[in-house]
Amino acid sequence: MFEAKMLQSSVLKKIIESLKDLFADANFDCSSSGITLQDMDSSHVALCYLKLRSDEEGFEDYRCDRNITLGVNLGLMSKILKCAGNDDVVTLRAEDEPNILTFIFDSKNSERVSKYDIKLMEIDSELLGIPDTDYSCVVKMPSHEFQRICSNLSQLGDSVTIDCHKEGVDFKVAGEQGSGAIKLKQTTSVDKEEDQVTVQLNEPVTQSFALKFLCAFTKATSLSDTVNLSLTQDTPVVVEYPIAQHGYLRFYLAPKIEE
């Protein structure tokens, strides 16, 4: 038996909304330690990795008697989650050898309980091991700022060059019709931690990435006030959105390289 009671259905809604356009079907791997989801996009350029820990406060109850994999169409899951109120408590339930995943939405005042079942899918996805890496540079910044930068620069070109150096981080685009550059300096004077821009730098990095994917990742902006960008030269960037009281959602994006 698997049963996970999440206090805020809005968190699950936001997660699925941020994934469903790049990742059509995905396996939720459930174990006693929590729920993970790993999926590559169809072009093998982007990968998402979700971790929701069972011992975090976001789960009111969590039970997983044996490891199970729940193969779900994320478009369908998004439709089901739209049936939940944002303040509803959502319970996910499945048997040990499941064909069906059940969603139960309890309204805050417990006056309305709704239940939906969806058929599970057999999804043949290759599980990848993501090596532990010490990144040359980790940028922490407000998530809405990163979203704005990606959105602004995508109007002029297809790829952004991210340049991390000791003063801060530069985002540059050069397209056929024009170019743009946004410089972010490290902030030390800002009161709120979530408004700060910090750059942990071991080595400077200059690397280009496709804006199409970065813009897609920023659909996760509402999950977190901050986003962490981890970069090393000639390796995939990690775009991490911490999820309070649950874990995190990470996106990996392969770099653009010189021809």
Binding site: M40, S43, H44, V45, A46, L47, E126, L127, L128, G129, I130, P131, S159, S208, A210, T235, P236, Y252, L253, A254, P255, K256, I257, E258, E259
Partner: peptide
């Protein structure tokens, strides 16, 4: 011009 790399070479297949 830059080419889009694939993720495959960066990760280990389990």
């Amino acid at each position: 011009n830059k080419l889009q790399a694939s993720l495959n070479p960066f990760f280990v297949h389990k």
